[in-house]
Design a protein around this nucleic acid. Structure first.
Lengths: 233, 233
DNA sequence: CAGTGGTCTAGACCACTGA
DNA sequence: CAGTGGTCTAGACCACTGA
């Protein structure tokens, strides 16, 4: 039996191959269901999934359209490594710090821990195509993530390691983004000049159960990085 | 018969009233369906809707949870006025320019028009609690939006006017965000100093049919504004 | 008017959880 | 093991679109 995901994959491939052209209409749902030997509801959830990704555009009472070329993909979040690869840049990292320490007031509040509770602190300088692009500072609860300290995180996505080694899936991130100027110290790390513009993002990430698993800040060079996102209404 | 939306509203109210407490489990879907006299599938789409908004947290094979207090709402986009009111600030605007002009190469590319096609240009300085916060520049296709030029947009949300006066609903926005420094001219408009950090967002907005309805850039003072967003994975 | 997506029903079977 | 969410079926009726 064909599942929702298999049907979505099939449609995705047809679009990528060009069988279904941008701005053209999809066949009627009832016809797709019959051709694929599934019920119409199953076709609908597959279409919903692709519409959510931005590949298809639903129009009430009219056929669903294949999205135009320029609509970019979903608003889901990616790790630094994933994002850089998606943009065609080669990522690598230098680990500057990786220690166990204790939570001060702001960190405790962000991670929902007691003040003084053990936490892990990671600081990585992240490169794209050999150039330093972002300085990332992450706090994690020690109780859940102690094993991370003995793993090599230099060139691995933190989210991938969390998932594969600890079975923890980050699913929701609340982020804020602001514009700041680089301090002398920060400029030195990037090899640029103090007072250059930079994007500072703060992120609180939660797992499937809604528990906070990470409080992170990332400082991106303003002259090299632009954040992209898709919003819906 | 109860619909998906009515069921979602009912659950939303129960959560707001505190009948359903944060971090507690929702009743089983089968029980809710029976109590409400609807089928389980209908209950499920209502729950999906609230989970999408961040009010509920689904857990496979376990009861759905009411989200904890701190999880913020959806990642949908808002107009400047809507966003300011949501943050508890009083918005107002000064219209600096509102003219018909012709599309140059970048504007034509963004709006999917021929070079030289007629477009509307709006430039507004936007205030929060009496302080200048953002400089917004918008291009719209003249063919669809000519009536806007004769309306008062000084203190109205552009999206509200589009919807109410023209029946056009903005539903999808592709945005990019970067950090820049204010030029002497821009600093003068804000009444601050050149070289201050600022957030520059570029936005392409589409209607329900996927047509581009707006190409906008907004320049936010970095010392006063922080962008907030929620990402999912 | 036929075509089409939006929504709903009343079941069914599955995989996973946790006592 | 019972409880539970995830997925699917094979229909049904509705409202809107556009010829």
């Amino acid at each position: 039996m064909l599942t929702r995901d298999q049907i979505a994959d099939q449609l995705r491939k047809r679009i990528e191959r060009g069988d279904l052209k941008p701005d053209s209409a999809l066949p009627p749902e009832r016809l797709l269901a019959e051709d694929l030997g599934v019920s119409r509801m199953t076709v609908r959830v597959a279409i919903d999934q692709l519409a959510e990704e931005g590949l298809l555009v639903r129009r009430p009472n009219r056929r669903t359209l294949v999205a135009g070329d320029k609509i970019s993909r979903s608003a889901s979040f990616m790790s630094f490594s994933e994002e850089m690869r998606a943009r065609g840049w080669r990522p690598h990292s230098v680990m500057r710090q990786s220690t166990a320490t204790v939570a001060d007031v702001p960190v405790a509040a962000q991670l929902n821990l007691e003040i003084g509770a053990k936490v892990i602190y990671l600081e990585r300088l992240r490169f794209a195509d050999g150039e330093p692009l972002a300085l990332e500072r992450v706090h994690l609860p020690y109780a859940r993530f102690a094993p991370l300290l003995s793993l090599d995180l230099t060139n691995q996505s933190l989210y991938t390691v969390m998932e594969e080694a600890l079975g923890v899936r980050p699913v929701l991130a609340e982020e804020s983004v602001e514009a700041v100027l680089l301090s002398t110290q920060e400029a030195e790390i990037f090899g640029t000049t103090a007072g250059s513009p930079a994007l500072l993002t703060r992120r609180i990430t939660r797992d499937e159960e809604g528990y906070v698993i990470e409080a992170a800040t990332s400082l991106y060079r303003g002259d090299r990085y632009r954040m992209a996102l898709v919003r819906r209404r």
